[in-house]
Design a protein around this nucleic acid. Structure first.
Length: 342
DNA sequence: AATTCGGGGCT
DNA sequence: AGCCCAGAATT
């Protein structure tokens, strides 16, 4: 295919590198993943390097990319490959599919790209191309729809070379048959395209579900003493699992600073300590796909060594920021603080 | 079958 | 403001 892009993961047949790229590309644009891919491979050149790393180091390399369970699953799977497959990446679709974080799309992608095995990789691009081309109105987010598209994709692949076919149809969806305003005027499949011939290009693919967003209210306590401040690790099954943040008081509705001082969480943290609030930030609205996080940062300068016996918290210095993975929301705030205090 | 996981870019 | 991105795991 003469119009394909030059991408770093296309320069190798190493299943490990292809694996890393496919995980990073899940629900993530190519442009966002390129730098992360290069940094990741530089730090972890082989499965063995990744398997021996600490999860925290892997998450730090993933910082800002989102969907952090991908990094946790990647690390866990590397350990499994190291122990149970003697460090050799499995070379069958069935075995690849067993690995954590690898579903039908990623297994087919790796199987075809690394081992040229005949499995049709069906991602968002393929759903779009096939639904428009054939006029398939089954919902792509239904169990039946997914199964149907997988069948159609396999039939469409036929006896083509799996690696070439999969790369081509995905690339076609990414560059030509794009979600909005596809380039139909220069499309080679124009004459055969159901959607175009029926003026329904914007009707495909069909989705059934709709996302609803929740509002959450975060009050982050930036407790500092000179260049040191308090952090904790998020451990619950929630957003940002195993990433670090400042002590957090979450509420189900917006509250004033005065109300915050009277919450049980505040009293639990500080008892009857005397505190001076240095500043309260403006409301920062951090938007995720399905959550709007209304956030305020409460800056308190205090003798934070009084907090070191509080279970679950750690005191770190600015110079140690590079060792801890933080959500983008915290990373942005840290960048502001360190700019003011070099 | 429905929900939950980030963050960014484009319209 | 909404949609979607080289999706998968969990409930």
């Amino acid at each position: 295919m003469q119009n394909k892009r030059d991408l770093p993961w296309r320069e190798t047949k190493d299943p490990y590198q292809i694996w890393i790229s496919e995980i990073m590309l899940q629900q993530t644009r190519v442009a966002s993943a390129i730098d992360y891919f290069n940094r990741f491979l530089k730090q972890f050149p082989t499965i063995s390097d990744l398997a021996q790393a600490e999860e925290q180091e892997v998450l730090k390399l993933w910082q800002g990319l989102g969907y952090y369970s991908r990094a946790r699953n990647l690390h866990a799977a590397a350990k499994i490959i190291q122990l149970e497959y003697h460090g050799i990446f499995p070379d069958s679709y069935k075995e690849i599919l067993k690995l954590k974080g690898i579903g039908t799309y990623t297994a087919a992608a790796i199987a075809s790209f690394a081992f040229n095995l005949p499995h049709a990789a069906v991602d968002g691009n393929v759903y779009r191309v096939l639904s428009r081309l054939y006029g398939i109105n089954k919902a792509i987010d239904s169990t039946e729809g997914k199964k149907y598209f997988q069948t159609i994709a396999s039939e469409t692949m036929g006896n083509a070379i799996p690696e070439i076919y999969n790369q081509a149809i995905i690339e076609f969806g990414a560059l030509q048959c794009i979600p909005r305003s596809p380039k139909c005027d220069i499309c080679p499949l124009l004459a055969n395209c159901f959607a175009h011939n029926n003026a329904q290009v914007d009707q495909f693919p069909v989705k059934s579900k709709q996302i609803k967003t929740k509002n959450r209210y975060f009050y982050y306590l930036f407790l500092s003493c000179k260049s040191r401040f308090l952090i904790e690790k998020r451990k619950k099954k929630d957003i940002w699992e195993n990433l670090f943040q400042y002590p957090l008081i979450e509420y189900d509705k917006p509250i004033s600073t005065n109300e915050l001082l009277r919450t049980s969480e505040w009293k639990e943290l500080f008892g009857n300590m005397e505190l001076v609030i240095h500043s309260v930030s403006e409301n920062v609205i951090h938007k995720l796909s399905h959550q709007n996080l209304h956030t305020k940062f409460i800056h308190i300068e205090m003798d934070i060594d009084k907090m070191k016996n509080k279970y679950g918290y750690a005191i770190i210095n600015h110079s140690e920021i590079s060792e801890y993975p933080f959500p983008k929301l915290i990373e942005d705030h840290l960048n502001k603080m360190t700019k003011n205090n070099p």
